[in-house]
């Protein structure tokens, strides 16, 4: 029983991390209908910002997290205003080619400036060690920290989307851009803000993930498939969809690797196939979107 609890908590931590990394993608893909394969590059940017700040300038890790968010969001905003917006109307193939090009540029750039090796940071002492829950069941303090942060963020995102004026503007802009424009909503600004926040969240996820997922220049490609699976399984019409999808995939992945190690790495794909066979539009699709 205790073992089950440990595996469950590890899975939740992994799933939460996936959610933070991928939820920006589900927004751009689902709400803005833009295939942004370069999403992982923003996560990588956040990770490298953290590495440079922690190792090079001795900035405390906790302070680095909001900085990673802001830097990734700023890069996202800049690229959205200069490059991405030109492709909103383009077909998906063009968007894929453009964003995959960005990924390769980001990877080569990071390789050139930071080197290709695995980056390491040292966590502060209070985030290290084990937290004992019950006899035999324990979870790493850092994983618990990830769960708490990501859970709070998920709630905040859901509230913003459903309760605030910005949220309703965004939903309006997505549902029908022209009518929204007619009502005086500045659709371009709404999209730019959304894109920046999504990139920022990826950056935060990248920073949080250094210790769990590793960080090297191949990061955007290595995890692209995971992000896409989250979005595909979760559907793209809400925050709750990708959130639950991340949790299911995270727990399934960890449990699969724990209980059937030989098969474990295929677990996430198997789950994707099964879910898509049962629900072709994702777990929470409300209508026939993409």
């Amino acid at each position: 029983m205790c073992r089950v609890l440990t595996v469950l908590l590890d899975g939740i931590a992994y799933g939460m991390l996936l959610f933070i990394l991928a939820c920006g993608l589900s927004v751009t893909l689902g709400l803005m209908n833009f295939v942004n394969l370069a999403h992982g590059a923003f996560a990588m940017a956040g990770g490298y910002v953290t590495v440079v700040l922690v190792n090079g300038y001795g900035v405390p890790f906790l302070l680095c997290l909001p900085i990673a968010f802001l830097v990734a969001a700023a890069i996202g905003l800049l690229l959205e205003r200069t490059l991405y917006r030109r492709l909103y109307g383009a077909n998906h193939l063009d968007q894929v080619l453009f964003s995959i090009g960005l990924v390769f540029m980001a990877m080569a750039g990071v390789d050139y400036f930071m080197g290709a090796r695995q980056q390491l940071i040292t966590l502060p002492d209070f985030l290290r060690g084990q937290f004992h829950l019950a006899e035999g069941a324990s979870i790493g303090v850092y994983r618990l920290f990830i769960i708490v942060i990501c859970a709070v963020l998920a709630v905040v995102l859901q509230l913003i989307l459903s309760r605030t004026r910005f949220g309703s503007r965004l939903r309006a802009a997505v549902d029908d851009g022209e009518v929204a424009r007619g009502l005086g909503i500045n659709v371009g600004t709404v999209f730019a803000m959304t894109f920046a926040v999504g990139s920022g969240l990826a950056g935060l996820g990248g920073a949080l993930g250094i210790e769990v997922l590793g960080l090297d220049p191949s990061f955007p490609i290595r995890f692209m498939i995971y992000f896409l699976i989250v979005v595909v399984v979760g559907g793209t019409s809400s925050i709750a969809g990708p959130f639950l999808a991340s949790l299911i995939l995270g727990i399934g992945d960890v449990a699969g690797k724990y209980y059937i190690p030989g098969f474990g790495s295929f677990m996430i794909y198997t789950m994707m196939v099964v879910i898509l066979v049962l629900r072709p539009h994702g777990l929470f699709a409300t209508r026939g979107t993409s």
């Binding site: 073992r3 440990t6 595996v7 590890d10 992994y14 994983r143 769990v212 997922l213 590793g214 992945d253 960890v254 449990a255 699969g256 690797k257 724990y258 190690p261 474990g264 790495s265």
Partner: peptide, 10 residues
């Protein structure tokens, strides 16, 4: 996949 958690737990 450098998340060793489940393997180490096992």
């Amino acid at each position: 996949d450098p998340d060793f958690a489940p393997y180490l737990q096992r």
